[in-house]
Design a protein around this nucleic acid. Structure first.
Length: 487
DNA sequence: TCTGGGGTCCTAGGACCC
DNA sequence: TCTGGGGTCCTAGGACCC
């Protein structure tokens, strides 16, 4: 806990939904829900307008649709969000070399280490300037928390939302958080909150009163001691710029449960290949292979195997995953499969050629030879892989944005929210598709709300397009070429 | 129409070694 | 022959975060 509030926490407001509203003028001021649109999708982000209907992150999409049938429902476009995130992170990098991203839309910054602030006034000025710069550069708002520790800075940004700034003056934190629910302390979730409540502990002050020994007895060594320290406002964790990845994993939830053992094996092998693709893409190899299986009843189990040394060979990982599957009873059906690799090591330069050869051989003769005849979920999965993380998943069935519009399987490229370009009408986005047609709204970030037109899905004049920058003049970094990069 | 996907950290028991 | 304690690795599961 430092004496000046020079730790900054930035949290973009309703990030995915706000980015969609900024790029689609007709959605501004309207309820927007971003998430999986398949039968098993959940909400990733709801705009503030949608939150007024009671919609929130992690809510099943079906429930959201019941609460707000007229909201716009869009698939996430991670490539687009990543580009905006890059702009924001670059602005943070100008404040300090010590920037610790927590996700695409959230980061800690050590202002003192950057020399931009050493007291409250300086920190507040830097925070306000940052918020202005983010708005000018991305067209989006972010909330800023400033405090003498990470925990308090994070609490402060949460309190400041939306579109605000809160500075917690060191020395005042106890009176601020003391009367509040323990749930405001990061790391106290539903289970811990309930556990504490049963012990008669509801507020932060009551955590302090309980004492460290009691908390350790209730929650275990690590959790108990850290919660007690947090409740007292003690938190000396430094802002850490570079954190090494510890694991890489991929998983798919299927639209309908899988029963056929051969199909399950095929999916596991495909996941293993995808996982290795990501592993290699991040420049790692790993030693422990993990298979994850979620059954029809949502019970989840993992099986793992540690190799003698690290690998990034798709054949090795695929065969290990297949062995692990042999240990699992899948009768009754499987709703999710996942494959992960942990125990990561940086792979070395001399391994590169051997690994590339091994992979080429594996892919040529391996299990992913043909997708012909594979049911719909698997095809969507293959496409998600090919599209390199557009947020597509097997369970995502493109659905309509407008109420009453048809919700039929369609080409992934016409998923609701995706950008398109028409040779005559110019840039627009897919509002919905079905029965061989796709509905497009023609508008772009700087324009007035646009008109809707409908086309055949195979209309040669209509094609998928890259997202356009939200702020033409203020675009920096990756967007400076006038557009965001293709996936 | 109940419940995504990608992560991190912690705990606990057993194996194994000294 | 009887029975220690500690450290590390591995496995499985769970809580939590965005």
């Amino acid at each position: 806990m430092r004496a000046a509030p020079t730790i900054l926490h930035l949290d973009m407001d309703a990030f995915f939904a706000a980015a969609e509203q900024a790029s689609k003028p007709s959605l501004r001021g309207k309820p927007v829900v971003v998430g999986g649109l398949g039968p098993r999708g959940v909400v990733a982000t709801a705009s503030y307008e949608a939150r007024r209907f009671g919609i929130h992150s992690a809510m099943p999409m079906g429930q959201a649709r019941r609460l707000a049938p007229n909201a716009a429902y869009l698939v996430p476009r991670f490539t687009f969000y990543r580009a905006i995130s890059g702009q924001v992170m670059e602005l943070l990098g100008r404040l300090s070399p010590l920037v610790e991203p927590l996700s695409l839309d959230e980061a800690f910054v050590d202002l003192e280490a950057g020399g931009v602030a050493d007291d409250s006034a300086g920190a507040r000025a830097a925070g306000e300037r940052l918020r202005r710069d983010i708005l000018a550069t991305t067209g989006l708002s972010g909330s800023v928390g400033l405090a003498g520790s990470k925990m308090l800075a994070k609490i402060a940004s949460e309190e400041a939302k939306p579109d605000g700034l809160l500075l917690i003056e060191p020395g005042t934190e106890r009176e601020l958080i003391g009367p509040r629910s323990v749930r405001i302390i990061p790391g106290v979730g539903p289970a811990t909150g309930e556990h504490l409540r049963r012990a008669g502990i509801v507020t932060v002050d009551e955590v302090v009163e309980a004492g460290q020994d009691e908390l350790v007895r209730l929650l275990g060594r690590a959790h108990g001691t850290s919660l007690y320290a947090m409740a007292l406002g003690r938190d000396d964790r430094p802002v850490v710029a570079e954190r090494d990845a510890k694991s890489v994993s991929v998983e798919d939830t299927f639209d309908v449960d899988l029963h056929d053992r051969l199909r399950i094996r095929l999916e596991v092998e495909r996941l293993a290949e995808r996982c290795v693709g990501r592993l290699r893409g991040s420049g790692h190899s790993g030693r422990t292979i993990v298979l994850k299986v979620r059954r029809y009843d949502f019970s989840t189990l993992t099986r793992s195997e540690t190799l003698r040394g690290p690998t990034d060979d798709p054949v090795v990982v695929r065969e290990a995953a297949a062995r692990l599957l042999d240990l699992v009873d899948t009768t009754g059906g499987v709703r999710l499969l996942g494959v992960g690799v942990s125990g990561l090591a940086d792979y070395t330069q001399e391994d590169l050629f051997a690994q590339a050869e091994a992979q080429a051989g594996a892919l040529a003769g391996g299990a992913v030879g043909t997708l012909t005849g594979v049911p719909a979920g698997a095809r969507a999965g293959a496409q998600a892989e090919a599209e390199a993380d557009t947020g597509a998943r097997p369970s995502e069935e493109p659905a309509a944005v407008l109420p009453g519009a048809a919700s039929r399987p369609a080409e992934r490229r016409w998923a609701p929210g995706n950008d398109v370009r028409h040779t005559v009408y110019g840039p627009g986005w897919v509002q919905g598709s079905g029965v061989g047609r796709v509905t497009v709204r023609f508008e772009e970030p700087g324009s007035a709300p646009g008109r809707v037109r409908t086309f055949a899905v195979d209309d040669p004049e209509l094609e998928p397009a890259d997202p356009l920058p939200l702020v033409p003049g203020g675009a920096t970094g990756v967007a400076s070429q006038g557009r965001y990069p293709a996936p």
